[in-house]
Design a protein around this nucleic acid. Sequence first.
DNA 1: CTCCAGGGGCGTA
DNA 2: TACGCCCATGGA
Length: 267
Amino acid sequence: MYEIIEPNFDIHKICYSGQCFRMREKEDCYAVVAYGKYVEIRQQQDQIQFSCTKEEFDTIWYDYFDLSKDYDTFIHLVPDTDEYMQSAIRFGYGIRILKQDVWEMIISFIISQANNIPRIRTSIQTICERYGEKKETNGISYHTFPSPEVLSNVSDLELRSCNVGFRSKYILRAAQIIASSEVSLSNLKKMSYEDAKETLMTFPGIGKKVADCVCLYGLHHYDAFPIDTHIKKVLEEGYPHGFPFEAYKGALGPLQQYAFYYDLYYK
DNA sequence: CTCCAGGGGCGTA
DNA sequence: TACGCCCATGGA
């Protein structure tokens, strides 16, 4: 067990913020599976407990939850005159942009297109249970996210039975592209935001929106600004005279996340 | 019944 | 560039 103090952190909001699909709320904690590890998180106000050693926290979860970043610096970029964003930030305070696995983000957000969050979660869960590696930590068993090599050898028909519908071909092709190193993940991680987005958009089934999600949640480019149905509505209704993209440079991704969460649950 | 869900590909004007 | 339609699926 390892504990930290962080005021700008809310595990409940992060769990339901729509950026991660495998985090789960349990009776007295939140369970996360990422990078082949399982951890439980318990929070009371600004005290956050991780059910792991300090070493595992330092090597995995500190980065995963982006704890080196002071999220107040993003917030301070927003002037009082932007009432919409001020409200969104107040509502979503404590949300952070997770540093998730790029490969997992590619598949997760391909599945997300024209889909709803509950079904995205069950589809990903099914894929992990069928093709991921089964592991166990402190008597709790879990499944890792399957590798590109494993997924590339699954049949289209079999993938469809994971309830992914027409997206199965996109998933298979992405697995082939990565497994064959037609696109190298390590190169993708070194690219600028613009180059990474352009490269991702060469994948069938990845357009601007999905590419931006991968850039933000998997590659941690803070200026990626995914525009989905919710954000489109936010831009039309909350910013009829235009959104201040230039003024918010450097914080576009986190601000998009506050706005998304606000529209998703508050409306 | 239609509409919608963290869209994208493709054909047409 | 902009629009319409299709893609699979199930809940509202």
